[in-house]
């Protein structure tokens, strides 16, 4: 038996699920992650819609109603200054969300640019980037950010400055991971092939390297939101974060903390919202990690 054609296995390939479909399916099977995703969407919607529907705005002072327990007039009570805790919590949540997302996007951008550059080009660019990473990591970020915030923040710019600083001191770990992943991708055959077909380096990075570590970047972006929100809270707790009259969950918790044992409502409302928010973000991050990486089984950031 002899035929003229050379064709071998051109029979229609077996049907397989596309990668994105498979990822979605794996994600949806993880109940925690789905609950988390719904939670985030719900919280974002609340942050956008409800401020206009509430009887009080976050910076309004109800004279004569100081430190009032929750009642019909103020559903979650008032603060020492007579501001409505519910309105402040909702506003604080939207501040925290904005800060969280801004920081996450910024730091992921910085880390993937620098990490991939260091690994792909090697030599002096790698040396200098690694040196900068060491420099940024040698002092706990809290100290530096606190000093700068103390000196330079004003009530108007405080949240933005805080977000920029958190991003500026938050990219190093991911950049290291991106670098080591790029190092392993750099000698992958499709990257070599692209090089040998004459593609310029920036195109190789943008087209072949970053898309192939996108699962890490997506997970990192998600978890970064949670870390940024927690970091914001921490700095605001000491008064180095968002400044009054602007309000974040951190400033509100901080205000409540001093009176937590006697006037617990000021403390507990924002604290509960914060924990729910961060848990949702982390659940989504963990769920994405499991869904994107078939080898990963679950859990935190090692």
């Amino acid at each position: 038996m002899t035929t003229d054609t050379i064709a071998e296995s051109t029979a229609t390939p077996r049907r397989r699920m596309s990668r994105s479909k498979l990822t979605l399916r794996r994600f949806l099977r993880n109940k925690m992650a789905v609950v988390g995703a719904c939670g985030i969407v719900a919280l974002i919607l609340i942050a956008i819609i409800t401020p206009h529907m509430l009887p009080w705005t976050y910076d309004q002072i109800d004279s004569g109603h100081f430190l009032k327990a929750p009642d019909g007039r103020h559903w979650l009570g008032t603060t020492q200054a007579g501001r409505d805790v519910l309105a402040m919590t909702v506003h604080g949540m939207s501040r925290s969300l904005i800060i969280g997302f801004t920081v996450a996007v910024l730091q992921t951008t910085i880390s993937c640019t620098l990490g991939a550059t260091a690994a792909y080009f090697g030599r002096w660019s790698e040396k200098s980037i690694m040196w900068v990473i060491d420099l940024f990591q040698i002092i706990p970020s809290f100290l530096v950010i606190a000093v700068i915030m103390k000196g330079h923040s004003t009530p108007k710019n405080s949240w933005l400055l805080l977000a920029l600083l958190l991003a500026a001191w938050g990219w190093m770990m991911t950049a290291r991971v991106v670098r080591s992943l790029t190092l392993s991708l750099k000698h992958r055959e499709y990257v070599l092939a692209a090089k040998y077909m004459g593609l310029p380096a920036y195109k190789i990075i943008a087209r072949h390297i970053l898309p192939n570590i996108s699962s890490l970047l997506i997970v990192d972006l998600t978890l970064g939101v949670g870390y940024a929100i927690l970091a914001e809270t921490g700095l605001s707790f000491f008064g180095f974060g968002v400044m009054a009259p602007d309000t974040s969950l951190g400033t509100l918790i901080s205000e409540g903390a001093r009176l937590a044992t006697t006037y617990p409502w000021i403390f507990s409302a924002p604290a509960i919202v914060l924990v729910i928010l961060v848990m949702c973000v982390n659940a989504v991050g963990d769920g994405l990690r499991d869904a994107l990486d078939p080898n990963s089984s679950s859990g935190g950031r090692a």
């Binding site: 949670g226 927690l230 809270t233 921490g234 707790f237 951190g250 918790i253 903390a257 937590a260 403390f267 604290a271 914060l274 924990v275 961060v278 848990m279 982390n282 659940a283 963990d286 935190g300």
Partner: peptide, 13 residues
């Protein structure tokens, strides 16, 4: 996960 998602001062308080 609950503990990790809670700021330490909130746990303290």
């Amino acid at each position: 996960l609950l503990i990790v998602c809670t700021p330490s001062f909130v746990i303290g308080i």
